[in-house]
Computed example of a mutant assay.
Amino acid sequence: MSKAQGSFDKLTTHRLQEMKASGEKIAMLTAYDYSMARILDVSGVDVILVGDSASNVMAGNETTLPITLDHMIWHATSVVKAVKRALVVVDVPFGSYQGNSSEALRSSIRIMKESGAHAVKMEGGIEIKESVTRVLSAGIPVMGHLGLTPQSIYKFGTYTVRAKEDAEAQKLKDDAKMLEDIGCFGVVVEKIPASLAKEVAESLSIPVIGIGAGPEVDGQVLVVHDMLGITQDFKPRFLRQYADLNKIISEATTDYIKDVRSKNFPNEKESY
């Protein structure tokens, strides 16, 4: 049994800070339901992100934009019930915090009170400074998210790598430092050059978690459906698929249908 699997000390934002300081990498995955969250937690994952990617992988939407605050709270509540060790972070969905710090606070309070989550995550830099500051002032831990920010996909118009040009790279570095200065406990950087991600991680005292940002950050995050091969039509360069559950589930379903139709299931031992 690994150290992570054998230890059930509750993960906190302070513990993540210690992990960064000691060079211990942070493992983060998404989950949206009780059963998956329980498996990930027992396996020893450090952070579970209840991501607005539920809009894509759970609801079949093209983007993360349609998911609502009520939806996110429902998913987060299911995840929190399963978790004994991991830190549970919940995305504040599009339209629930941008441009209105009072609404950002109300949304974050609802997430924390109704789901029992441990922290929230918001996308953006200086543009959402007021909202982040307001939420932090209420004692709610906030994780930032920079680089490719899926809630702004219509602004970018593409899912290509961000911050390749000097001006955008400098803004990302400035935004990351700002998020640290106002009190965020960590920041996700998505789909940016590995060299830039390394520079950001080395310049901050808070953990920097990468997705498509190379190996020289403080931890990694993936969407669990992508990592397990449930999703079949999304295979970006940064994704390592650790299983092919699509194939396994499909084959099991085919076998079940075959056995039902041939009257092989249930057999005598499976009957009362």
Rank of each mutant, 00 (worst) to 15 (best):
P266M: 10
I67L: 09
G116T: 11
L65A: 14
E251H: 04
S96N: 15
L239A: 10
P150Q: 07
I140N: 01
G44T: 11
A167Q: 06
N56V: 12
A213R: 04
V79T: 07
I26F: 08
L228V: 13
E103C: 08
D218T: 13
A4N: 13
V50S: 05
E123D: 11
I140V: 11
V47E: 02
I211F: 04
T133C: 10
I126G: 00
I73Y: 03
P141N: 06
L65W: 05
T13S: 12
V89D: 05
S108C: 15
I249N: 09
M112R: 04
T158I: 03
L87R: 01
G183Q: 11
T63G: 10
N267E: 11
I192F: 09
K3E: 15
A197L: 10
I248A: 10
D175L: 00
S115P: 01
L196V: 05
E127L: 08
H145T: 09
P193R: 12
S205F: 10
A104W: 03
V142G: 03
V47Q: 07
T133R: 14
A119L: 06
K258T: 14
V90H: 03
F156Q: 06
R106C: 05
V132K: 10
Y154G: 00
V135M: 08
N56D: 03
P207L: 08
I209D: 08
M72R: 10
E165Q: 12
G23P: 08
S96E: 13
S22I: 07
T12Y: 08
Y34W: 14
D91T: 08
K113R: 12
I206W: 00
E268V: 15
N246M: 04
Q151K: 15
Q17A: 14
T63W: 08
D175S: 11
S131T: 02
V221A: 12
F8H: 15
G219Q: 11
A197W: 08
D41C: 01
Q232Y: 10
D226H: 05
V187D: 04
E199N: 08
L179R: 06
V80S: 00
L136Q: 07
V200A: 11
I248H: 10
V217Y: 09
H75M: 03
T30I: 06
D244A: 07
E202I: 06
Q17W: 08
K247C: 00
Q170W: 11
P93S: 02
A167S: 10
N100A: 12
K10F: 07
L204F: 11
I192C: 01
V120H: 06
A54D: 01
H118F: 00
E103A: 07
S262D: 13
K10P: 13
M1P: 00
V187A: 09
T231R: 09
I211R: 05
L148P: 12
S262V: 02
Q151E: 12
A21L: 14
W74H: 15
Q170G: 00
G144M: 07
E180F: 02
K10V: 15
N61K: 09
G157V: 09
K113T: 13
K25Q: 15
T68C: 05
F265D: 02
K173W: 00
K20A: 03
D175T: 12
M112Q: 04
T30A: 03
Y97V: 03
H118M: 00
I192L: 07
A86I: 13
Y272Q: 13
S55Y: 02
V187R: 04
V42A: 14
V208K: 02
A167L: 14
L239P: 05
